[in-house]
Design a protein around this nucleic acid. Structure first.
Lengths: 203, 203
DNA sequence: AGATTTACATACAGACATGTATGTAAATCT
DNA sequence: AGATTTACATACATGTCTGTATGTAAATCT
């Protein structure tokens, strides 16, 4: 086979990752054979095994390609609660508009078994959760200091509640293709979740 | 092979389901072979195929064996918010004390790919979510009528938020084996989630 | 320009899982 | 009591997937 240039090879690798994501989201991670991914990408398993050690390695590449949904540090305006809400809204917006992100999270939340080599990914997700807690606890701490919320709100506990809300929202949003449970009203849901903490709720 | 009595056969079936649950939770649904399940149960694949059509069918039996976690109608005392909280607390209590329930939900939330024959299970879960919404909307509706919560709380929306919270809580609780994110404080978390809606929060 | 990698394709070997077909002795039915 | 199921075990036939080894022509290096 004619050797490809470095740039071409990078494109090939990227195509493999992209196709892997699509096949994973259609057939589930465990059920997809690397043969299927290769065919979809217009290469043979040889190419896949040259770029990735095994399916787990490929899966990591899929995750890395889309990166993380939630990035609070993109939002620097408004009070703590507004920035928190903006971050959450942006995450769900991305799911709505970015097909790649949607597929990746569909795979991670519904089409993957966290066993064997994938058990470590679950640990990753839990580490991400801890990070989420740290950041959101900060937000609520600031909210307390600024008297945006009740003085006896426990920031750490509130952050944990928000974490649960967010985790469940992501999972349900993905499964709710017809919009019967949460998809139709995500925006309101998020708004309400953080507004619910604010002092003097209307009336 | 000596034919078993009907009662014995029922026991065999039950053993197969029990072992399936354990193996599923160890190795993931897709990765477990019916051979492994059979061996664990002290039978051959013949027995498994006699009692169940295929792995998906066996999976349904696993789900049915442990039943549903959440049953609000067990709680009839207290106001609407108290009954709601009691239901949620009981669900998490069951996870804590009932190993079978824990394994089953571990499988459903972390060790299963909802693809092919299992896609229908995801629909089931969403149907269950709709049911949850109906019941919890009722609770919040009653809470509004009884002036337990703000008059302009939207029961349907609040129920959706609670659904997300509960879904995320279940998933995170299962993964949080070290109690760093939510497991250590589930009780407080649930209490806070519903208490947060109540009018006149302390101070 | 020659030597060396690189980026794959091809080929090979083995493991494993699935579904079905068939056998069978004892329960259960009539 | 005989006929018929039942509750499995055993055997078979087949497909599929994995990982690795090997080949190769062109990039890239020196």
């Amino acid at each position: 086979m004619a050797r490809k240039t470095k740039a071409e090879a990078a494109l090939t690798r990227d195509r493999i990752v992209t196709c892997a994501r699509q096949v994973f989201s259609r057939e589930g991670v465990t059920n997809t054979s690397l043969e299927t991914v290769a065919k979809e990408a217009g290469v043979t398993r040889g190419a896949v095994y040259w770029h990735f050690r095994d399916k787990a390695d490929l899966f990591m590449a899929v995750r890395q390609q889309t990166g993380t949904l939630l990035r609070f540090d993109d939002f620097r305006t408004g009070d703590a609660l507004e920035r928190l809400e903006a971050g959450l809204q942006a995450a769900l917006d991305r799911l709505r508009t970015d097909r790649q992100a949607l597929e990746t999270y569909e795979v991670m939340l519904w089409k993957c078994e966290y066993v064997g080599a994938f058990a470590s990914v679950r640990q990753d997700l839990m580490s991400a959760s801890s990070l989420f807690l740290t950041e959101v606890t900060e937000f609520y701490g600031e909210a307390v200091r600024m008297k945006l919320v009740s003085a006896n709100l426990d920031p750490a506990l509130a952050a944990r509640e928000t974490l649960c809300f967010y985790a469940g929202l992501l999972k349900l949003w993905l499964a709710d293709e017809n919009g019967v449970t949460v998809r139709a009203e995500v925006r309101q849901l998020i708004t309400q979740h953080v507004a619910g903490r604010r002092l003097q709720k209307a009336v």
